[in-house]
């Protein structure tokens, strides 16, 4: 299972980086979202991949699912959501003010 999850993480990051480098606000936002998802998955994995373990420490169990990554990932999701919401609004405003969806605020010059 490890290789499958690692591959998912890697593919998501790669797609995210590719989209961010597109330099148009819509792909960039999609890319940032994908990177955010990938990082959330990664944080979740820091508790190790395990199955069938209790989520609460009990007397007769020696091993249990690590609760902390779940708390961390929840925080990261909330913060990431707020950031993406902000950058969507900012992009809309930039589109209105600058009349282009390029992140530099000006159209690239066509190749001569």
């Amino acid at each position: 299972m490890e290789w499958l999850v690692s591959a998912c993480f890697g593919v998501m990051i790669a797609c995210g980086v590719y989209l961010v480098l597109r330099a148009r606000t819509f792909p960039v936002i999609l890319g940032l979202t994908l990177m955010g998802y990938a990082v959330n998955l990664f944080l979740f994995l820091t508790g190790r991949l395990t199955t069938n373990l209790p989520d609460i420490i009990s007397g007769n169990q020696t091993r249990y699912a690590d609760p902390l990554p779940q708390a961390l990932v929840l925080t990261a999701i909330v913060i990431g959501f707020a950031m993406i919401a902000f950058v969507v609004v900012l992009s809309l405003r930039a589109l209105g003010e600058l009349d282009t969806d390029h992140v530099d605020g000006q159209q690239e010059k066509p190749p001569s």
Binding site: G36, F42, L43, L45, G47, R48, P69, L72, V87, L90
Partner: peptide
């Protein structure tokens, strides 16, 4: 707005990278 776009997007990528670093340390 133009300067803000760069600032916001760079820092969003930075935040993702921060979490990866923290995740490795924790794991």
């Amino acid at each position: 707005t133009r300067a803000g776009m760069h600032y916001v997007m760079l820092n969003l990528v930075g935040s993702s990278i921060f979490l990866v670093g923290v995740g490795i340390l924790y794991s």
